[in-house]
């Protein structure tokens, strides 16, 4: 069991500024998986790139440790780094192009209900990945990271009202896509 198991993230950051490697390992343990999954979904399930970006996020954590304000929330800070990396990536690569992968092919094995659920889940994953990046980021922070609207507003540097409208819009888009998908399937 890590000696830092009960230490707060912000305190770990303070120790990290003093060069404490164990503090960094504890932070990595707590957040690496979540950041990786967030990246994975933001980058349309490109695992290799998601791994690279996750490494970059934690590299930034080490490099910018001194600039972290301990009165602020570490989770918000680290996801802001992750979100900014994604934004820069999309900016460099000329926007957010929708991609469909072959993994959406449905295999007819298992019960009908389970199959239906799997099909729906796969389709939903695809549609989430295909959302325009600002909506996708807001949607993932809300339902994947279970963040509060206020926290998301801080990360994306937008008003809380905009966060809510983006969530509503994202939900509307997904509902429309899923309805169209259901009409094609059935």
């Amino acid at each position: 069991m890590s000696k830092y198991k009960n230490v707060k993230d912000e305190e770990l950051m303070h120790r990290l500024t003093q060069g404490d490697e164990s503090a960094f390992n504890e932070l990595y343990e707590r957040y690496a998986q979540r950041i990786l999954l967030f990246m994975y979904k933001m980058l349309k399930q490109d695992e290799a790139r998601a791994q690279d970006f996750t490494q970059d996020v934690f590299l930034k954590v080490v490099e910018a440790a001194e600039s972290f304000d301990r009165s602020k929330n570490f989770k918000t800070w680290v996801f802001t780094i992750a979100a900014n990396l994604c934004k820069n990536h999309f900016r460099k690569n000329g926007g957010d192009v929708r991609e469909f992968s072959s993994s959406t092919q449905i295999t007819n094995n298992g019960g009908v209900e389970k199959l239906e659920l799997e099909v729906k889940q796969k389709a939903l994953q695809q549609e989430i990945a295909a959302l325009p990046s600002p909506f996708r980021e807001t949607f993932l922070l809300r339902y994947h990271e279970e963040m509060k609207v206020k926290e998301i507003a801080n990360i994306q540097k937008i008003p809380e009202g905009t966060v809510k409208s983006r969530l509503n819009k994202a939900t509307q888009i997904l509902a429309e896509k899923m309805r169209a998908y259901a009409q094609v399937q059935y």
């Binding site: 990595y28 990786l36 999954l37 791994q51 490494q55 590299l59 729906k120 889940q121 939900t171």
Partner: peptide, 25 residues
């Protein structure tokens, strides 16, 4: 929303991918 919450809960509880060691950092 309900489907998304279920999907993501599954993701986190049974991760399909694991992070690499933070060599760069």
């Amino acid at each position: 929303i309900v489907m998304t919450q279920g999907l993501f809960a599954e993701d986190i509880s049974q991760p399909t991918i694991v992070p690499l060691p933070p060599n760069k950092a």
